[in-house]
Amino acid sequence: MTFTEKYAAEIEGIMARFPHKKSAVLPLMHLAQHYYGYMSREAMEEVAAILDLDPTHILSLAGFYTLYYEEPVGTYVLEICNDLACALRGADEFVEMACDKLGVGVDGTTEDGLFTIKTVMCLAACDRAPMLQCNLKFEENLDEEKFEQLIARLRDEAANGRTPPTVVEKVAAYAKSTS
């Protein structure tokens, strides 16, 4: 099944929100990335076809906006903010600890393909640093122990195939219901 087939109702709902279909491009890219795991050539071509856009436009958007991954990433993308406000509360040391625990560098993916660590700019949670977003879900007031618990929970989730809907899917479901 292609992305276009699987999410036909969501795609229709998203497009119905705008008088000009080009506006649907970022939301559709979020959904396509969710389906393919990253902004693969296939993902870009499919979005371009749905919206009658040149695939190179999708490529330029994928390069411009941080949340689109141009290379394959792990099942769980851990985006840790280490901007100044978070760094004042130990975010740089937290990044180092997280990389050590998972045995990867920043932008690296664990060998089992489960985790990618990225450092990102301010995520609007400065009062709860160190913090990260895991597949866009906020995880806040973290320390080494809580990070280990999070990783253990995610490993368990993945091993048992009990992955809950991601926030991208949740948001797309609203577009579906309002179309």
Partner: peptide
Amino acid sequence: MSAYYGAGAY
């Protein structure tokens, strides 16, 4: 009214 989500750009 509709919600819209960007994709990471200050």
